[in-house]
Amino acid sequence: MQPHTLNVHIMHADPVMTAGLRVILGDHADFSVSTHAVCPHALSMAHVIVADYQGGIAAARQMPQDRYSPAPRVLIVTQFDKEWEVRMAMDSGVHGYLLQGCSADELVKATRSLSQGLRHLSESVTRCVADSLSRESLTGRETDVLRLLAQGCCNKSIARELGIGVGTVKTHVKGLMSKLDATARTHAVVVATQRGLIGPSQGLMRRPVNGFHNAALQ
């Protein structure tokens, strides 16, 4: 293998996407492209991993932190474009983030950039991250309260569901409304939905009250 060869390992969960990625990247002579379904052991030699959203996050979190043996760089190609989705991926150690539908040239450019130790985000993703960094993030508990507000729950119901006092609920509501620059509870839900912090009809996943929060919404 020549020193300049770039080993790209595709771990995308979508077989059609995998086929397309393989064709595009494999069209470049300096790329050695492998797919996880056919050649899983090639992962150990990869410089760049191209994956779907969940697979990319899992791969990034499992990479060893060894400065003497650099870990592969992770590039996600996905349709997920919500603020919290992008931020969770970046916080997990993902190095590149492209949206499905990007051009073949951008895919190749992103792969090369990651191999050089750089980051690459789609333009719309870059704007999303920049906008989110300019705003104060909701805490995990504020997000829990917000999602219950979206279900139409009153303060007493929220307090009962989360195992906290009504006064504490009021404090969280006041805090999240301030962070969302909302003028009313329903306005806060609308703003949060527009920003992708909660889905249009997303409710709180029922779970025992134990102090832990959904990792994707922290």
Rank of each mutant, 00 (worst) to 15 (best):
Q2M: 06
Q2D: 13
H4E: 15
H9A: 02
H9S: 04
H12W: 08
P15Q: 11
L21P: 01
L21V: 08
V23T: 13
A29Q: 14
D30G: 01
H36T: 12
A37R: 10
A37V: 12
A37D: 15
P40N: 05
A46C: 06
Y53H: 15
Q54E: 15
G55M: 11
A58R: 12
A59M: 13
P64T: 02
D66E: 11
S69M: 06
P70E: 09
P70F: 02
V74N: 04
V74E: 04
I76G: 02
V77A: 07
Q79P: 00
Q79T: 14
D81T: 07
K82A: 13
E85I: 00
V86I: 14
D91R: 15
D91H: 07
V94Y: 07
V94G: 05
V94H: 05
H95C: 05
G96Y: 08
C102R: 07
C102L: 08
S103G: 15
A104P: 09
A104S: 14
L107H: 02
T111A: 07
S113F: 02
S113W: 00
L114T: 01
Q116P: 00
R119V: 05
L121T: 11
E123F: 13
E123I: 04
V129M: 15
S134M: 12
S134W: 01
L138V: 11
T139P: 01
T139I: 02
G140F: 04
R141P: 00
E142K: 03
T143H: 14
L146T: 03
L148F: 04
G152D: 04
N155M: 08
R160V: 06
G167V: 06
T168F: 01
T171G: 06
V173E: 07
G175A: 15
L176A: 09
L176N: 05
S178D: 13
K179T: 10
A182I: 08
A182N: 10
A184Q: 05
R185C: 10
A192M: 11
R195T: 01
G196C: 05
I198R: 05
P200Y: 02
S201H: 14
S201L: 13
G203T: 13
M205T: 11
M205Y: 07
R206A: 12
R207E: 12
P208D: 07
G211V: 07
N214H: 13
A215N: 03
Q218K: 13
